[in-house]
Measured scan of single mutants.
Amino acid sequence: EEPGTYGVALYRFQALEPNELDFEVGDKIRILATLEDGWLEGSLKGRTGIFPYRFVKLCPDTR
């Protein structure tokens, strides 16, 4: 996996908008950016989108 910051999904998130990223509990999401209003941008399984930061637990930065 690529170096960078990752978050592990604490809850299932179902995308409601085309720019959102849906995921299941336990998915490991690569964090790409921190956005305003409590949203993160991340990538998972070749898809990129935004999601609420409270749905993931950030992992320590590992290489």
Rank of each mutant, 00 (worst) to 15 (best):
E1A: 06
P3F: 14
P3A: 08
G4H: 15
T5H: 07
G7M: 13
V8D: 03
V8Q: 07
A9Q: 01
A9E: 02
L10R: 05
L10C: 06
L10Q: 05
L10T: 12
Y11N: 11
Y11W: 08
Y11T: 14
Y11H: 14
Y11I: 11
R12P: 11
R12Y: 01
R12K: 09
R12L: 04
F13G: 03
Q14R: 10
Q14M: 07
A15P: 08
A15I: 02
A15N: 05
A15W: 04
L16P: 03
E17N: 15
N19R: 11
N19P: 03
E20M: 14
L21H: 06
L21C: 01
L21Q: 07
L21R: 01
D22T: 12
D22R: 10
D22G: 13
F23L: 11
F23S: 06
F23A: 05
F23R: 03
E24C: 07
E24P: 02
E24M: 09
E24L: 06
E24I: 07
E24S: 08
V25L: 00
D27Y: 05
D27T: 04
D27R: 02
K28F: 04
K28N: 07
K28Y: 06
K28V: 10
K28L: 05
R30Q: 09
L32M: 08
L32G: 04
A33L: 04
A33C: 09
A33W: 04
L35R: 15
E36W: 04
E36F: 03
E36Q: 09
G38R: 06
G38D: 11
W39A: 05
W39L: 10
W39Y: 11
W39R: 11
L40M: 12
G42W: 06
G42K: 00
S43K: 11
S43V: 08
L44N: 05
L44M: 05
K45C: 07
G46F: 03
G46W: 03
R47T: 03
T48M: 00
G49M: 03
I50N: 07
I50V: 12
I50Q: 12
F51A: 00
P52Q: 00
P52A: 03
P52S: 01
P52R: 01
P52C: 03
Y53W: 14
R54K: 15
F55Y: 14
F55E: 04
V56G: 02
V56K: 00
V56T: 05
V56F: 06
K57R: 13
K57A: 08
L58S: 04
C59R: 08
P60I: 10
D61N: 14
D61Q: 10
D61H: 11
D61T: 12
T62V: 13
T62Q: 12
R63V: 12
